[in-house]
Amino acid sequence: MAAKVIVPKTEATLTDRDMDRIIEMAWEDRTPFDAIEYQFGLTEERVKALMKRELKFSSYRLWRNRVARCKTKHAKKRNASIDRFKCNRQRAISGNTIAKRR
């Protein structure tokens, strides 16, 4: 079976559900920007621009301060023992297929 190739989406092709999920992932402390890029093709800079555009300015400022202090948002700053994008209690995430809790 051939490996699945993930094609980066442009911001114009993101659905409202995609935007909500990106914002949710950006707010999560343990979800690195690499996971967002893997699933949606958005670099850290594009995620920051999206957050600035979509959030109220005060919420954006709170988020930026939180990200700046958070060592788990950047894969290079993470503890070497953390080798996954997701919580071990979360079901598998593959490409853009997102498992929701029920």
Rank of each mutant, 00 (worst) to 15 (best):
T72K: 06
F33L: 07
H74L: 15
Q90T: 11
S58H: 04
E54P: 03
G41E: 03
E24T: 12
V5R: 13
F33I: 04
I36G: 00
I22P: 00
C87D: 11
R91Q: 12
K100A: 03
E11A: 11
R101M: 06
K100Q: 06
W63M: 06
C87Y: 07
I93V: 15
E54T: 15
L14C: 02
S58T: 05
T72M: 08
R102L: 04
A68I: 12
K100E: 08
A35K: 05
P8H: 09
L42F: 01
K86H: 11
L55Y: 03
V67E: 02
Y38T: 00
E44A: 11
A99N: 06
C87G: 01
M19C: 11
P8M: 12
M19H: 05
R101H: 04
A12D: 11
A75V: 13
K100V: 03
N88K: 14
T10D: 14
S94H: 13
R64Q: 12
A68N: 14
I6P: 01
Y38M: 03
T15L: 01
E11M: 14
M19V: 15
R66L: 08
K9N: 10
R102C: 02
E28Q: 12
E28G: 02
I98P: 00
D29F: 05
A3E: 11
A12W: 05
P8Q: 07
N65Y: 08
G41T: 02
W27G: 01
R84P: 01
F40M: 10
M25I: 02
A68M: 11
C70D: 14
T72L: 08
R30C: 05
T97W: 10
H74C: 13
T72G: 01
A68V: 13
K73I: 04
R61W: 06
L55K: 08
D18L: 03
N79D: 15
T72D: 06
G41H: 02
E24N: 12
W27C: 09
A35E: 06
K4D: 08
R21F: 05
G41C: 03
D34S: 15
T13I: 11
Q90L: 11
L50F: 13
A92N: 06
D16K: 15
E44K: 14
W63S: 00
H74W: 15
E54D: 14
N79P: 03
T10Q: 10
I23C: 05
V7W: 08
R89E: 12
E11D: 08
A3R: 07
T10I: 07
M51N: 07
R21V: 06
C70E: 08
D20L: 10
D16H: 09
I6F: 13
V5N: 09
E54N: 14
E45M: 09
F57L: 14
R21P: 00
W27M: 10
A80I: 02
N88F: 14
D18P: 01
P8W: 09
K56C: 01
I23H: 02
C70K: 01
C70W: 00
M19D: 05
D34G: 04
F57A: 15
K100P: 00
R84K: 12
W63H: 03
K4Q: 10
E37T: 02
R84F: 05
S81N: 13
K4Y: 13
K56R: 13
D83T: 14
